[in-house]
Write a protein that binds this DNA or RNA. Structure first.
Lengths: 234, 234
DNA sequence: GACAAACGCGAGTGGTCGCTCGCATTCTGG
DNA sequence: CCAGAATGCGAGCGACCACTCGCGTTTGTC
């Protein structure tokens, strides 16, 4: 509920001019400007969270940040760019913090442990940054962000697929594996929505329920492997 | 205006319940008007499906229906009313067609059969009426429709809960049961999204995958009961 | 056929929103 | 210290949208 996401300005003291793909010059920023940008992004996160992307007005974001509309457009070319930048920073933060959450593919890890760790990490991230969920689930979001969403989805899908193929190395059909990965992601999404919709002990219970669902779904697929006899109760 | 006179135009082929729920006078409609309403709702369904509710403009709906904006407002007081009426008709249709999909609670039914039947029926409905999904999942939808969404969700939740409690009659905690029902609905929603996103054989495969996930999730909970040994392969 | 009401139209209205522009203020390099 | 850039402001512009209004057309009823 509390969006306590302070967004660090990326690597202060280093300017990047190698953006040759954009014909725009890398606009010199003062420390004040970087602060304003962070302030605006925080405000945008709050507004996006409460009203969604399309319903959020740039004036509202500026008001929330305590600046004028003109100031907002000093730092962002348009409304979409705000969401893009916000999404980029969140993605970057996620990668650097929980990037390897899905990576460990030690085949000796019991299923419950692997699933539990991955779920815990991602749930934690989404609880800390509720905007992420809002940005990635809005069906009203225009082109560019949608691309990012697709990219993220593809990335996660690949990770899950890798993790799954390491857990069940002798699976027959890669198409089946792809569907299983899709289903896992979908189940995670559904569970995340339930988790975010509750708090305290109830939230914990839903986290456990999500883990149960995933483990039970995957359990029969790892039947070839030995071990993993435990079954978590609620 | 004069008070309501005899309000029984023939209205061929359809009952009228709208005069009872509207406290306003029930605007006498001609057959032409009813046709226009159906036409407009069909157009609205198409536009809502492709662009979402908020992004859909009433002018676009009118254009899609081949009428003028003024004509649209001859039959609907505002944009929201269009979605409301559309939602009402869909809900009514769903109830009368698949209302008992979740109802049968014969404890002798094997789990796979119960889950499979329920999933098949609801998947079929959602495939026939994609607007339903669009209307019920838009986070951008204003108050009234959101209430309907909540009502539907609560109804489905109650049905699922009933069905579950009939399948596992000796479950300990009703809170656990509620969470399980929520999780089932969430899994169904996630699976539905995957199903709608594919076609042909791939769609069928996802339907099967959804059934597998639900069955495996619920299987350990019905362990007290005997039978249900089969396991469907993909 | 006459009358009223339902239907149909499409330019127009008020309001919101994304975004701009001119100008004032603060910072920074030389 | 001073030119020039970065920052900051907020009224306002154009576009779009939900919705209206006046008027002409069709339909049901007597």
């Amino acid at each position: 509920m509390p969006d306590n996401q302070e967004l660090a300005p990326d690597t202060p003291g280093s300017d990047r001019q190698e953006q040759a793909q954009e014909k725009e010059q890398p606009r010199r920023r003062q420390a004040r400007g970087e602060r304003r940008i962070a302030q605006l992004l925080e405000a945008a996160a709050h507004v996006f969270c409460t009203t969604g992307y399309t319903a959020a007005s740039t004036n509202a974001i500026a008001r929330e940040a305590g600046v004028s509309p003109g100031t907002l457009y000093q730092f962002f070319p348009n409304k979409e760019a705000i969401a893009i930048e916000l999404g980029d920073r969140l993605m970057h933060r996620m990668r650097e913090t929980y990037g390897e959450a899905l990576a460990p593919v030690d085949p000796a890890t019991p299923l419950e442990e692997a699933v539990g760790a991955a779920v815990d990490r991602f749930i934690a991230f989404n609880c800390d940054h509720p905007v992420f969920f809002a940005l990635m689930h809005g069906p009203d979001i225009p082109g560019r962000i949608s691309e990012e969403h697709d990219a993220l989805h593809a990335t996660l899908l690949a990770r899950v697929t890798d993790l799954l193929s390491s857990l069940l190395p002798d699976t027959a059909d890669p198409a089946d594996l792809a569907r299983t990965a899709q289903m896992c992601l979908g189940m995670y999404k559904a569970g995340l929505e339930l988790v975010l919709g509750h708090a305290g002990a109830e939230r914990e219970a839903y986290v456990q329920e999500l883990k149960n669902a995933l483990v039970r779904y995957l359990e029969p697929l790892v039947g070839a492997r030995l071990g993993t006899p435990a079954r978590a109760g609620a």
